[in-house]
Design a binder for these strands. Structure first.
Lengths: 209, 209
DNA sequence: TATTAATTGTTGCATTTGCAACATATATGA
DNA sequence: TCATATATGTTGCAAATGCAACAATTAATA
């Protein structure tokens, strides 16, 4: 899986980060990495750890938009025209690299050769993000909770090249990720078990279909 | 709005398209531009016209994933791991340019200078697509039909820099876009009107909030 | 290890939604 | 222009969902 600095010399990376005025920051679990991202060009890369992009609306309803892990990118330009309710929250101790998005898109005067490589990496990462977004759209576009769960489970299993996968969400978070009521989801998971579609053995879900 | 060949000389574009073995094809309204995209690297640009990316599942439920207009890109690599139920359908007479995605990512031996420009344009387009995807995710992540409609209307109006916007979907298509039942949506639109939230005057929606 | 916090599991009930089946209006094409 | 197709609008009803409130289990931490 390509990362932003793939195939760039250690030395060149250092130079670039200096040129970008990049800051490496460690966020403790539960801390807010970014909020109110619209109209900023701040941009980040997860170096280690995990984070969630969440929306909490005026009713206090929490929605997990996306789950970020090592190598993932985030920041203003990707949510530009989007409203101001988004935050990025560390879900474990998480190290991020922050800098201004313009440094990626606009070459500086020096026009370093490795900048081309950076842009190519960025392109790949964005293509992957589009893909992931489309996957999620297809999941939550399903009408019923049952179908959403099945589509989610199948997608996870497929990406795992298997008929099973390890849950990386708590069930509470999964409900917020799928934008459904938790208790209704529990009810449906129970149904899926009873109907023999799935089996859950300590945090691993097995698909029988 | 950046297009794929922005800032590339007319002549260079011609050379590139030859090198890419690109085909320009006209699809009549309602014709299928692509289906079964997973595991292909076929890639396209809309030159003129409009198209929808749709999913029709085993129950015959139609879902409009995305609406494509001039300058938009589409194709295998963006839906790679996604299932095989997707199709791209022309919604008006539509001219597209088709070629293999590899030509974008992998520079050929000639290593033409304008290829860098192409990749930078592609990066911008992808970033915009990520943004658009996130917008849609935030809309359909709302739990109720009422909230989905309001979020959709507000997003459209905001992108229009206004308190109103022109509908570019039929209501039937809007329901498929938002993944909700059409009749239930009509009911809710009626409620929104009665509650004074919106007003619809021939295909233009005015927000009063 | 004891205490507290968080997660999982369950249920009744009101509300929302989807579905089916219409009527009406508007658009399209022979 | 007439006939047909498509889009809009409406309703009753069954099914699915969200909400609230709770118990039981598991995890976190003082």
């Amino acid at each position: 899986m390509i990362t932003l600095f793939e195939n760039i010399e250690e030395n060149d990376i250092k130079k670039m980060l200096k040129c970008f005025d990049a800051r490496k920051i460690l966020y403790k679990k539960e801390r807010t990495i970014l909020t109110n991202m619209s109209n900023t060009t701040i941009f980040g890369v997860i170096l280690s750890g995990t984070a969630n992009i969440i929306r909490v609306d005026y009713n206090g309803v929490r929605n997990i938009l996306e789950r970020l892990t090592e190598g993932d990118i985030f920041g203003g330009p990707l949510y530009e025209s989007v409203n101001n309710e988004l935050s990025i929250i560390a879900t474990s101790d998480t190290e991020v690299l922050l800098f201004d998005y313009h440094h990626i898109v606009n070459r500086c005067r020096k026009n370093c050769e490795y900048h081309s490589r950076l842009i190519e990496n960025m392109l790949q990462i964005l293509a992957r993000k589009v893909q992931a977004n489309n996957e999620k759209l297809l999941i939550i576009s399903k009408k019923t909770i049952r179908e959403k769960l099945l589509e989610y489970f199948q997608t996870k299993a497929r990406n795992n090249g298997s008929k099973s996968f390890k849950m990386d969400f708590t069930l509470t978070d999964l409900a917020d990720y799928l934008s459904i009521d938790r208790s209704a989801m529990m009810r449906e998971i129970k149904n899926l078990k009873e109907d023999g579609f799935i089996e859950i053995i300590n945090k691993r879900i097995y698909l029988h279909m």
